[in-house]
Simulated scan of single mutants.
Amino acid sequence: MVKTNSQQIKIITTAAEAFIKSVPQTVKELYSKNLGSEIIGPVKGRPISEDLQIIVDKECDDLFKSIITNTGLSFDIYSEHGTYNINHTSSPEYIAVIDPFDGSSLYRNGIPAEWWSVFSIFDNDFKPILGRAIDIVRSESYEAKSDSVSMQTISSESKITIKPSSKTSFSSNVWIASYLMDPSYLTKWYPLVENILTKWPATKIWPNGGSSIYPWLSRGIVDAYLMVNEPKSETDPGLSFAYFSGYPIYEIDNNNQLIPYQFVPQNNNERSKILLACCTAELAHEIINECNII
């Protein structure tokens, strides 16, 4: 019997919840045994100085593939570590884009901080239908669907609706996130924002990013995310959070034009020259003007 769309969405939602509940145990069990940091190989599209696939990445990736396979629905999965055709040989009903374990470099160096799994699921017209994220260390999960985003702690059954910040200018003491732990990003990023930091000294920087930043933008913890040379595999898993929260994501194209970010799953190994996600369009344009981006 062919399942109706609503039945399929229920199956997907249930599978997503199963992953969110299972992946922390997978990660913490590996960490408790001093396992998971063994290197498998490079991440496609990244220099080895920037990122490497390790065992914990593969374990989380395999867990997601297994759970999606068990839905019986046809999927294409675009992971940071590969592309997988699930339950089909032609075209899928759904597309999943996942960063199965965000925080590999920290894990590999024994730092128990900023470990996340983040994914978005789209229909075959590339329309977001669900986003999920789990902050493994803080035991907080996030869900984006039906024009809202919610969060809950693992120990609580109640969900809290969350909303992005409403800031529109630097006069509101803005928090900007950017992944700056790798000097190759920091050296390109600082000249871009030097004017902001000089002119608006109350601006604060959260020096981490990637797919995990989108739930925090939805929650209003940070106000903007500005990156140079951002891998699309870090952006795409968080797109459902931007979509259902209603905040914009822009990128600078090869013609140095500011355009809305375009989701093309086959391009997940490419990079955005400059990427800007922001709680409001007004703040985004102020950042662009202050940085002289275009």
Rank of each mutant, 00 (worst) to 15 (best):
N70G: 03
S120N: 07
N254W: 02
N267P: 07
G131E: 03
I205E: 05
W206Q: 10
K33E: 06
F241E: 01
G41C: 01
L180C: 10
Y190K: 15
S32L: 11
E17F: 11
F263L: 09
F119L: 11
N109Y: 05
I40R: 07
V193L: 12
I67V: 13
Q257G: 01
D125F: 05
S117Q: 02
S218I: 04
E157K: 15
F119R: 12
V137A: 13
S66G: 03
I77P: 01
R46T: 12
N268D: 08
M181L: 13
S90V: 12
I213T: 13
K188M: 10
S139R: 06
K188F: 05
P42R: 00
R219N: 15
I39K: 10
L35C: 05
F241Y: 01
C60N: 15
E29K: 14
F126Y: 14
R138Y: 10
T187M: 11
N195G: 02
K159F: 13
E29N: 11
N85W: 00
E93P: 09
S146T: 14
V2R: 13
S37E: 06
V137P: 12
N195E: 07
Q266Y: 01
S22P: 02
W200I: 09
K145Y: 01
R138Q: 15
K21A: 14
S66T: 12
P231H: 07
E59P: 01
G103V: 13
L258T: 07
W216N: 14
E251Q: 13
S148T: 15
V23P: 01
T198L: 14
N269Q: 15
I121V: 14
S245D: 00
Q152G: 13
Y190N: 13
E157G: 15
T153K: 15
T14Y: 04
Y107E: 04
V118K: 09
V228A: 09
I98P: 01
H81Y: 10
S245H: 00
T235E: 09
T89A: 06
G36L: 00
K199E: 00
S240Y: 07
S166D: 15
E93R: 11
D102Y: 04
L276A: 00
A281L: 05
D102E: 09
S172A: 14
N85H: 10
F244R: 08
L217F: 00
Q8M: 09
E194G: 10
F19G: 01
F244E: 00
I134T: 08
N5T: 10
V118M: 11
I154M: 12
G210F: 01
N269E: 05
D76L: 06
I134H: 04
G131A: 08
M227T: 12
N87P: 00
I154C: 12
I77E: 04
S172G: 14
L106R: 06
Y142A: 09
D51E: 14
I98G: 00
K65L: 11
F122K: 02
S141Y: 02
L258P: 01
I67L: 04
D253G: 10
Q8G: 14
F244S: 05
K204A: 03
I68Q: 02
Q53T: 03
V118F: 08
T168K: 12
L217N: 04
L197V: 01
S146G: 15
I68N: 03
P207S: 02
Y243N: 08
N256A: 02
S66H: 13
F19I: 07
L52R: 13
Y214A: 07
P100K: 05
S120H: 08
T280Y: 01
F170S: 14
Y225R: 10
S117K: 00
